[in-house]
Simulated assay, not measured.
Amino acid sequence: MGGDYGPQETVAGAVAAVTEGKGRVAVLLVGDAEAVQPELERHNLQGLPIKFIPSEGVILDSESPMQAFRAKPKASAIVGVGMIKEGYADAFVTMGSTGAAMAASALLLGMMEGIERPALGGPIIGLAPKTVFIEIGSSIDCRPSQLLDFAALGVAFSRTYLEVSDPRVGILSVGAEEGKGNRQTKEAFPLFQASGLNFVGNVEGHDLCGDRVDVIVCDGFVGNILLKAFESLGEGLSRYADAAAVGRDVYNMLNRIEYTGGGPLFGVRGNVIVGHGRASSTGISQAVITAARLSETNLAGQMEEELTALRARIAG
């Protein structure tokens, strides 16, 4: 039900995902019957592993997620995440309210030990498809210890999902030297040094598309501005490209999330993918495939193990 074009594009994306997946995925479409059923009738679903699950109401971006959680207990996001909790689904994909997905995930699935709230992260730049950025929007003001937790989550994602054997970690700052940055990054630096992670030090803006680091850590305020700046740059440059194909290539190189469809919520005990509200059926299809792979790799379990190991190293 979420997103700028739901449920029309959502249903079309689900059909594309199960068709392209060739038996790899089955989709449970959660939403209001009056809105979803007409869209289902537009497609030939014979033999496709798609099932409709009714829900009541939608949590909007303009609403307080926690208040809506109490007022709309049968809303689509709550029903969808609840299906993971009850063992009926392996992952949840939404293009709707990020706050709703975070609240439902934290309350229904629970948080990993020591993690206060879900974090957003993953590759965001097509020019650096294996560089993980964390955090990119859910935690605006972070303590240095939270940045270290983000690093552990990012390392687990890099190792498990992107198959980087020993991910290199850096703190995004205004200079490479240890003393550079604001109070947050300066206080985080010694914590990272003592963490046992493969910490390479501070990284700067000109390192974002290079090969110096695999996991770049920052707070959500900086990360979200960075994400949207690259997306805007991709849109702007693609308009000035001479050929349509070139324009699309430029756009894709700077908008990695458009290719993957969305990114996981880090730190929750389950697989939850949050995508762009503006996502088309193509992006939604990719998000479903991404969710399937997260489930297959047991990413949530790998993240918990990485956090446990981090805490043991610090305590020891």
Rank of each mutant, 00 (worst) to 15 (best):
G3M: 05
E9D: 15
T10L: 15
T10Q: 07
V11L: 09
A12I: 06
A14P: 08
V15Q: 07
A16Q: 11
V18H: 02
V18K: 01
V18S: 01
T19M: 13
G21Q: 07
G23K: 01
V25G: 01
A26Y: 10
A26M: 11
V30A: 04
A35R: 10
A35I: 11
E39M: 13
E39K: 11
L40D: 14
E41T: 13
Q46L: 10
P54Q: 10
E56N: 15
E56P: 05
L60T: 14
L60M: 10
S62T: 14
S62Q: 15
S64R: 09
P65Y: 08
P65W: 03
P73F: 07
P73I: 07
K74R: 12
A75F: 09
A77P: 08
A77G: 03
I78W: 02
I84R: 06
K85W: 05
G87P: 01
A89K: 00
A91R: 00
A91I: 05
F92W: 12
F92S: 02
T94C: 05
M95S: 04
G96K: 08
A100W: 01
A101V: 10
A104L: 06
A104E: 04
G110T: 10
E113G: 09
R117T: 03
A119K: 02
L120F: 12
G121F: 04
P123S: 05
I124K: 02
I124L: 10
I125Y: 07
G126Q: 09
A128D: 09
A128K: 06
E135Q: 11
R143N: 09
D149H: 11
D149Q: 15
D149W: 14
D149I: 14
A152H: 04
L153Y: 03
V155K: 01
V155L: 04
F157R: 00
E163F: 09
V164T: 11
V164Q: 11
S165F: 13
D166F: 08
V169M: 04
G170I: 12
G181A: 04
T185E: 02
T185C: 05
K186Y: 07
S195W: 02
G196Y: 02
L197I: 02
V213R: 11
V213C: 15
V215N: 14
V215P: 12
G220N: 01
F221V: 08
V222N: 01
G223W: 08
N224D: 11
L233P: 08
L233Y: 10
L233M: 09
E235H: 07
S238I: 06
R239L: 15
R239A: 09
D242N: 10
D242M: 13
D242I: 11
A243N: 12
A245C: 13
G247D: 07
R248N: 15
Y251I: 02
Y251N: 04
M253R: 12
N255S: 09
T260W: 06
G261V: 12
G261R: 12
G263R: 00
P264G: 06
G267I: 06
G267Y: 05
G270M: 03
G270R: 00
G275M: 11
S280N: 13
T282P: 05
G283A: 05
I284E: 10
S285Q: 12
I289K: 14
A291S: 07
R293M: 15
L294V: 00
E296V: 04
E296Q: 08
L299C: 00
Q302L: 03
E306K: 03
T308I: 10
T308E: 06
